[in-house]
Design a protein around this nucleic acid. Sequence first.
DNA 1: GTGAAAGCGCTAACAC
DNA 2: GTGTTAGCGCTTTCAC
Lengths: 372, 372
Amino acid sequence: MLRPRQVRLRDVADAAGVHPATASRALNPATRAQVSADTARRVLRVAEDLGYRPNPIARSLKTARSHTVGLVLPDLTNPYFPPVVRGIESALEPAGYHAWIVDTHNDPVRERAQIDSLCARRVDGLIVATARRDHPHLRALHADGVPLVLVNRRVDGLDVPSVAPDDASGIAQAVGHLAALGHLRVALVGGPATTSTGAARTRAFGHAVRDLGLAADPALRAEASQWTEAAGAAALRRLLDAGAACTAVVAASDLLALGCYDALAERGLRCPGDVSVVGFNDMPFLSRLRPALTTVRVAQAAIGAAAARLLFDAMADPPDAPRPARPSLFPVSLVVRESTAPPRRDRGLPRPRAGGAAPGTAFRTSWAAPSD
Amino acid sequence: MLRPRQVRLRDVADAAGVHPATASRALNPATRAQVSADTARRVLRVAEDLGYRPNPIARSLKTARSHTVGLVLPDLTNPYFPPVVRGIESALEPAGYHAWIVDTHNDPVRERAQIDSLCARRVDGLIVATARRDHPHLRALHADGVPLVLVNRRVDGLDVPSVAPDDASGIAQAVGHLAALGHLRVALVGGPATTSTGAARTRAFGHAVRDLGLAADPALRAEASQWTEAAGAAALRRLLDAGAACTAVVAASDLLALGCYDALAERGLRCPGDVSVVGFNDMPFLSRLRPALTTVRVAQAAIGAAAARLLFDAMADPPDAPRPARPSLFPVSLVVRESTAPPRRDRGLPRPRAGGAAPGTAFRTSWAAPSD
DNA sequence: GTGAAAGCGCTAACAC
DNA sequence: GTGTTAGCGCTTTCAC
């Protein structure tokens, strides 16, 4: 594509008066020792002067390596991911690797095509944030020896390196916080059980509720079909429609929590006045929301960087004998903001107010002085 | 990287009992006609059976085309961009193209390296969202015949296709809205004048202020050094420190506007009670903020898709004679939310309170039914 | 320490 | 309509 006839290794070799093979050796730091210091210097200088840029395509064809890793994301518009990407790139780039980002839009069909495309382009490894608990494709890739690291979510029984936040601890902290505020009936808007993260957070919720002696009512749980605001709203709506009386809800992600905001607002329920909400991830901009969301902080960039490092390990391993991998869990911490408060004392259960009359404006006025 | 010895064109040809060249012709829709229908069918079937995936690296080496375009973004953590990326991909993918996203972190040095890397990898074209008005590198790329489309920002005097929101109209609408609310002293937190977008919006602000007969005080303008929240906050801080008395501020982007929120909050000034704020872009999540930001809506995905289509045109042109390109402007519309209100009537100029009278609630009540 | 030669997987002239 | 040949730009044995 570059017009001015790209300068090739051959041009450098000619100008330096050596064979292309020698020039190649001189240019490659790893093989530079095979060449006399003098030749090396000369070749390097000529290459510099000519503005030689090695052609990665040709190199890849020969070496079957691309110095590129595929980064498979479920949804680039989810603000959680950009910081993860930054973390990944910060670890990749010093090593001369580049990330190729694909966005599956949470669509398994798209995902398959994207991953195939990455593999065809001979990425050296894959960092995957779209894993489902049952994921034959990833399983097959791993069996094929493709270096693979999972981020956030894992595949059931697949022994592949992974890095994720400590779901159990995060949920325990969230529920603990609500319990400490005096909440007894805490609901869960869980993530899809098809994802390990969804399942783990739901499981952790069960444990926390039990340990703290809160209401263990199954009617207090709903599962969102996707990790999106819309799905979060739909899930909480179902809960409320079924008459679930709760004074707080733990959402398995921030986006789900935002959906909860919407569902509560539709019902004329205020947060945290009527219902407290806790999210998970601490994605950007949360502190600016109304109300600012209490959530579980996850070190997004650190997780990304760790994933990249694990991938380097995996790429260094013999493909037929990858080292066994225990999931690496990142510590998390609760960030208390404004979406959580003690339950209303005047009545145990919030319900749509105005025993019939349309709610709405009456409530809005009281927003004038938000709870901050 | 795929373990089970990748099946090559040669394997398909052998299995189908034809020469590799014939198999190649059969597999490529563009050359399929050169081959007997029968052979084509057979080759296709065998390829399918064997799970043949053409090796794009080898193909690229031969053809010097990659079916890949580079996408150069200043900041992937800016929520404005993911929707643009979606738009671009939605236009690229049906044509069999893939986007390679790079994030320059607003760093020209990084940008140069990233673009070089993309070019080395033989992307077929570039969609660039990081242009500066003075941009020798982009100018050189264009001179070299690299197909190029600019998004949002342009390069002074560089005749390259570009697509951007209608800055002038957006700013006019923003200022017009504030004027209609009764504001007389409207400040500008402009974007970097090194970017065409920054310059255009600042220019438009001047025109709007003049046309509407508002205060044209130079002390009412500050320029942010970057398109970030921090730079927006710093700019407004400078304005306020210098004693600029304004009742509203137009920020040249949403992120700058969020910075303004911060600077106002630091001074104990309320938005919109004391100072109204308008942003630009209508990036995601704005309606959830406190206060929900009034802003200029930009069709992000549409802009992205248009950019991709322009790039197809540019790639189709002879590289030495690209068609002349007029910038394509996308219509924008003001979205009024909660960050704008009439100026306080009790005094012309807001100042840090504690002086006494706490205003506030009185204004909020009228928001009960926000206009969105 | 350097050169010669082969070849990664594919496509595109050019024959026949 | 199909086969032959050459070669994209590089790396890597293997000689010397």
